[in-house]
Design a protein around this nucleic acid. Structure first.
Lengths: 341, 341
DNA sequence: TTGAAAGCGCTAACAC
DNA sequence: GTGTTAGCGCTTTCAA
């Protein structure tokens, strides 16, 4: 049988109330008894029952982590990393993180994750873009919620976001400092806030350095943001015949696709064309050449997310706090000083 | 405030015991009262507290899912899919699945996932190969455990495994039926049971069809099992100068790497060389040509795993049941009838 | 500084 | 058929 608070009480010759107080660091307890109790706890390897505690405290000790199915199954472990961060962060507060996916096309008629309907979580972390229908449905449960890498179009919320604008600037400035002037920008789906922000950063860096943006160099109408889109975007660019010596892709997948196309067309990277991506995905370092990119602290975003929900749960007040985590330029071998050709 | 069993009892004019009995489908209750109670449950949207129930039943309602960090972060969502399966399977029994990763090089001094030490799970699913040190440590908790895609070297266990041998046979027979005789086999790390089994299948298919295996055609000493290894393995094969018209790689990653090398060397796939992989990963269909492969029912493995732990939890007996899930040949465009060149 | 006791929401044995 | 009641393991007043 599991060892309970009673066992500890008996062993240390006090009441269960005292044990409980000791365990909660109540200062009214003499250090004498405290020591005795702690010793018993230790010797019995006593683990308080979360169930019993939860019942009294009206807390489940769980935090729900929700993302769409395709985000979870994405080849790049982006959200997976964020999840890992929450898992780690949850250790401090002794919470458990329950992961659930929802259909990518979640609609009115779909069910919410059980931990929401059954009120088996104290708070919620929602990672990545989720459908409005989901947002509406989940709102009815009034759970403390933190969004990660996504901010709903309506209302005020708590969220952990990354500094996309600054990232776009960093990437672009890096190229400018290398002497590049004709810097192309590759993007898909501008409806996505992150991508739009990166574009903004690109733009503002150009302007700050007195370079007037050339719309011809902006390929922003790809449907998707994968490798293929990057490949295709470069084709488009090349077909236009505009000259460019550097290229900033809105994410690494596109950057990699772009490099592939460029190499196939006989361009030397970085000698003839410099390439910068965004995200710092695993395979970047294994590219030929290794990709210069903007790194996103996924793990930290998870940790921050947990901290924030916890604050919200404890203080029980709507915080609507936005945390923007910094990004960082990682210079590898895909960028080099501009050389007249 | 949350609605409790008391509210339901009051609303339907019965005792809480009756409500509980109704909820558990006890036949002693008149269909009259049953209906009244159910109606109240419905109207109040009553959700039993897992906490309270768990406290009484001495069950947490949670099942732990453990895998190593790098398996979780793998580019291919293999274990991710299995996890999704468990998540789905858990709905029936109203369990929650707690996911935790352990360091890939877990050692004596590392901590077990909290849900184990805190006894916050009723059972365990361990996916993929995990270090012995972990196994030893976790064994002390005597939790009903099911292994998925891994079977510990020592002792008897419950496990969900896939039919690797049959998969190897299916792949090889497919090639034989297409008229191929000189079929190469590409593998890395033969220490991995799955790979060894696939190799066994390959071998036995050849023999069953009266083809004597040619050791020259077996490249089984790659260090890893990724794309690069596949690429490299084909180089080795080509350098040897042995002739072959088809190739079975121990997994899709290697198959894809192999195709890349082959194409680069000017070989036409499948006209000159047929290629079969194993796993049926996402990107197979997007290869050029789309890869013929052996499909593994990852999702189903998760579902089966949950079923099995549940059985073990309920019946409370060591089952040591092994379930081998069937695999399936997926014929795409990377294989064609043998043609004399 | 400590203990007794109520009660969190539920199940199940037992009584009626 | 249905209700009463004793806990499950814990926290937290309140009293001593």
């Amino acid at each position: 049988m599991k060892v309970t608070i009673k066992d500890v009480a008996k062993k240390s010759g006090v009441s269960i109330a005292t044990v409980s107080l000791v365990l909660h660091g109540n200062p009214r307890i003499s250090s004498e008894t405290r020591k005795r109790v702690l010793k018993a706890v230790e010797e019995l390897d006593y683990q308080p029952s979360m169930l019993a505690r939860g019942l009294v405290m009206r807390q489940t000790g769980n935090i729900g982590f929700v993302l769409t199915e395709d985000h979870f199954l994405r080849t790049e472990p982006f959200y997976t990393r964020i999840f890992l961060g929450t898992e780690f962060g949850a250790r401090d507060s002794n919470h458990f993180v329950l992961l659930a996916t929802i259909p990518t096309d979640f609609s009115e008629s779909d069910f919410l994750p059980r931990f929401i309907t059954q009120k088996n979580v104290d708070g919620l972390i929602i990672a990545g873009k989720v459908p409005d229908a989901f947002l509406e449905k989940v709102a009815r449960y009034h759970l403390p919620t933190v969004f990660v890498d996504f901010y709903p179009a309506e209302g005020e919320h708590s969220a952990i976001l990354m500094d996309n604008i600054r990232g776009g600037m960093l990437a672009t400035e890096h190229l400018i400092q290398l002497g590049h002037r004709d810097i192309a920008f590759l993007a898909g789906d501008m409806a996505h806030p992150s991508i739009r922000e990166r574009y903004l950063g690109y733009h503002s860096a150009l302007q700050q350095h007195g370079i007037s943006p050339n719309p011809e160099l902006e390929i922003i109408d790809e449907k998707k943001t994968g490798k293929e889109s990057g490949y295709h975007a470069v084709c488009t660019l090349l077909n236009k015949g505009v000259k460019f010596s550097a290229l900033f892709a809105c994410n690494d997948a596109m950057a990699i696709g772009a490099m592939e196309c460029l190499k196939k067309q006989g361009f030397k990277i970085p000698e003839q064309i410099s390439v910068v991506g965004f995200d710092d995905i695993e395979s970047d370092a294994f590219q030929d050449p290794p990709l210069t990119t903007v790194s996103v602290p996924k793990y930290d975003m998870g940790i921050e997310a947990i901290k924030l929900v916890r604050e919200m749960i404890e203080q029980n007040l709507k915080k609507n706090k936005k945390i923007i985590v910094p990004v960082e330029l990682i210079v590898r071998k895909s960028t080099a000083a501009f050389a007249e050709s």
